[in-house]
Design a binder for these strands. Structure first.
Lengths: 257, 257
DNA sequence: CGACTTCTTGAGGAGACTCAAGGGTGGTGG
DNA sequence: CCACCACCCTTGAGTCTCCTCAAGAAGTCG
């Protein structure tokens, strides 16, 4: 299950060959375990490594003027953490552990080898980043144009969809270890208002959100409320390079000419 | 100048070798010219090509329930258009021409060759996408946590910064062909409120925004107001593969095994 | 010149915020 | 074992930002 989750994001866009499977397994270094509340990487830190979330929940957030913060995204197992920071000298976001977590460390030279040795894997990684961009675009649309109730429902539906990808057997109850303060930081609201709106959602029988898990009572009604298109992933696009032949070293490694 | 703008986003992350320059020039196909207001690609269209903006301004937007829309981003020359859609079966956003524009069409097989033949270029393209993600993250933070005045100022500063990259000699006056309705769609506000807040910014001597251009009167004060970190790009990261040797065809093309 | 879009300004209303108080829960230490 | 503290959730009252509706001025294109 652990190793399956590590590849689920990749294989959504195309099958992995032996060479890719091998390199993907080598990509991830030692596993590190952290406790709830720990900071995995802070804003301003050097961007010298990536993380692959193995189990547990983490979140990425940006501090804004005056002690507040905007939470950008909640991560589920299989997500790669810290990638946007590669473009910057210093990390743009803080990554915190929402629960006890296990993550693999990915060193950057391994990423360089991925681009040289398995162009197919590089293209799939590129597509994962495009998917992340679309998710951020939808978030911009929601934050810019939706009221509090729609924002909260959109949040639940998004997390439900992503949770189902890791565990297709999961039903309408999903674990979601967020305090209402964290939910407010995600939705761009205040904790007080989150409490009120969740109360209304509960009262109308649409969903119930205890401290640790959400139960979706009326999925169709919720989808209706949010009214965002379904965003089907592009599986197996024709332009993606085919699996590389199994022998290595057709290209020089990045450390030797 | 045209060809310089086409490479400026790439070379921000590392120098381009001869092989990369060649492939990058071959990447872009025929130039297409469109008029102000034309739709380059609509939401739901097939995602079978990309565009490289040569001159003029375009914007990407998402329709939201009830006739409204959220504008995601304004593009300047040198930006690649349509990339997020690669991950989806149908385009998630509508790309419209804000002015008369010229753009090169990039067919997807050329993108596949880029990943196979020039891993360095692929890695740079990957980094451009990460930069776009960071810009979207900052936008999420602004929309989630900032009031109307800060949103507008953040918008101006972002566009000013990106405009300077193409024309380092540009001063504090930048062309910005957006109606107040478009500004409202960008900032997640209503046109009425945009008019009011721009009036206040003008009254306080911070900036003036006519229909076609913005003049920044007090840059330090505006930066102070927004208070987002500076986001220095990571130039020439060590993990990026070196330039490929000039001969081609070390890897099979994607059309032959 | 007329039709259209754009910008401005006013008045009233709604959604979300602030401040504040009270109850519940979990963890810590005496 | 219990007292205490810290955090979390809830609910109320008042305020403010931003929205809606509306009308008029200014500019643009056919």
């Amino acid at each position: 299950m652990d190793s399956k989750q590590a590849t689920v994001r990749f294989s959504a866009f195309g099958a992995l060959g032996d060479a890719e499977m091998l390199l993907l397994r080598d990509l991830a270094g030692p596993v590190r375990r952290l406790s709830r509340g720990d900071i995995i990487r802070g804003e301003g830190d050097a961007t010298t490594r990536l993380y692959l979330l193995r189990s547990g929940w983490t979140a990425s957030s940006i501090a804004v003027g005056g002690g507040g913060r905007q939470m950008i995204k909640v991560h589920v197992p299989g997500d790669m953490l810290g990638t946007p920071g590669l473009a910057m000298q210093r990390a743009p976001d803080t990554i915190t552990a929402l629960t006890d977590v296990a993550l693999s460390i990915i060193e950057l030279p391994a990423l360089g080898r991925l681009f040289v040795e398995t162009p197919r894997l590089a293209a799939l990684l590129f597509l994962i980043s495009q998917e992340e961009r679309v998710m951020l675009m939808d978030r911009v649309a929601t934050l810019g144009r939706a009221d509090a109730m729609v924002r909260l429902v959109a949040l639940v539906l998004d997390l439900h969809r992503r949770w189902l990808r890791n565990d297709p057997a999961a039903g309408l109850v999903l674990p979601l270890p967020l305090t209402q303060r964290a939910i407010a930081d995600l939705a761009g609201l205040t904790p007080v208002h989150v409490s009120r709106v969740l109360g209304r959602l509960r009262g109308e029988g649409l969903l119930s959100w205890t401290g640790q898990e959400v139960t979706i009572h009326d999925l169709p009604a919720l989808c209706d409320l949010v009214a965002l298109p379904s965003r089907d992933l592009q599986a197996d696009a024709a332009w993606i390079p085919p699996s590389a032949p199994p022998n290595r070293d057709r290209y020089p490694r990045s450390d030797g000419a």
